[in-house]
Design a protein around this nucleic acid. Sequence first.
DNA 1: AAGAATTATTATGTCAGACATATTTTCTCC
DNA 2: GGAGAAAATATGTCTGACATAATAATTCTT
Lengths: 254, 254
Amino acid sequence: MAKADSKDSQQSSGHVAREVARLILTGVWREGATLPREIELASRFGVSRASMRESLSLLKAKGLIASKQKAGTHVRTRFDWNMLDAELLNWTLTALPTQEFAKQIMEIRRIVEPEACAICATRGTDEDFARIERAYRGMDAAGMDRVAYAEPDLQFHRGILIATGNDFLIAFGATVAAALRMSFNLSSTNPGAPRKSLPYHRAVLEEIWARNPDGARQAMHKLMDLTEQNIVSAMSRQKKKDTEDEKARTRRAR
Amino acid sequence: MAKADSKDSQQSSGHVAREVARLILTGVWREGATLPREIELASRFGVSRASMRESLSLLKAKGLIASKQKAGTHVRTRFDWNMLDAELLNWTLTALPTQEFAKQIMEIRRIVEPEACAICATRGTDEDFARIERAYRGMDAAGMDRVAYAEPDLQFHRGILIATGNDFLIAFGATVAAALRMSFNLSSTNPGAPRKSLPYHRAVLEEIWARNPDGARQAMHKLMDLTEQNIVSAMSRQKKKDTEDEKARTRRAR
DNA sequence: AAGAATTATTATGTCAGACATATTTTCTCC
DNA sequence: GGAGAAAATATGTCTGACATAATAATTCTT
């Protein structure tokens, strides 16, 4: 987890890109909108045009924007945004961690991970399984420590994807990572929640070792159920807390 | 199709990025390898360092490379490559359209699209369905014209993903687009093949209109079966042709 | 006055050269 | 031989300039 954190926000260029992305994701700059010219953007963010262009280059690569000579730079339609990109996922997560976002990410996880798990049980090598088991042991060793639990949890899920040998499923690991990070952030209101998933992970592991695709799929499905349950309940709890805070603030303001 | 083509290879910066990506994808620059310093890269590709950096910025965004001050720029591990990115997919497709690649892309399509189709039948609006039907009509109208068939075919599949309302499934459209482009390229050896998928598309459309999730899932599953069949047979045909060409060339050389 | 052709404008695209910064490597000294 | 200081170096950033293509304005024609 800490390693992944150190990866983003590396340079100023990354910061600027993240900020522009935030403005787009939050709808300040809408789809189809033409954003200010490069020189203006550069001065607004306090960097040179060269650096600004590198930031924009990053966002172009993620499908957020497109430029045309003289015409300017415009925001592309949502359909072209590469939401399965690791950074973009994190930016979205911090910019607007809505319930809708959570539901969507869990919906696709439910589609992909159980099947990936079945493939893993079929094609995975013993080394693959050993790596997954190591992750499981790490989770177990973490005990009630939320922070220590997070990293091996990710490795567990990623290990399954890697074991499929399918590059596209492996790339899906970025989405899983974002989902787990979301869960982690939400678990602050219920520190014991993560640990509860341990037996479900164990069930997955056992089915995999048994090379039982159907069982593995089912076990992963149950794990997804639990995860989604945790997330939605945590989000409604959070939402409730937020509205209470809001009320308190208004009361104080009066 | 033509529209999508005009989007890539826009500027010199894109060309250079594509070329560097090719070198990485084909294994000339392996995972973990440190690539030449920016000044050298720039002169090698005949651009300025500023442009070179913009290209590298693009590749950083796609997870292919990472840079550290003084240490240089290195190729990241495959696990970090965002293979679900539209451009990266196309680059891979043109750089090394292997049978392995085809199998992997079809494997994930089989996982995602039938479920997306079921969701589409459940949650899609009538406008969504109408858009999908329009695409179907476009395919029908194309007749045996491979080129005219390709665009509505993509719109059909993309329409289903869009109808789910799930941003991640929508983003998966890039992968589907790459797969269809691959199919299109392969269909040159068998021009009649695309048209054969029409009744399968029709079946999908009908199940969707009937708001029958299970039927829609099944219909899409059958379409996936047919598509995969077409691809693998076309690839083996292509492979056979390639080896024959190879033989002929060796004969001539003697 | 409407429309076509031409010119001017402008924002992105590209270039060159310089300095800043953070590591790595080398060197020095104990 | 190891610890610490100094030098070297590749990326990071900045400035200012010119090229290019698409748009906007202008002129000319009918």
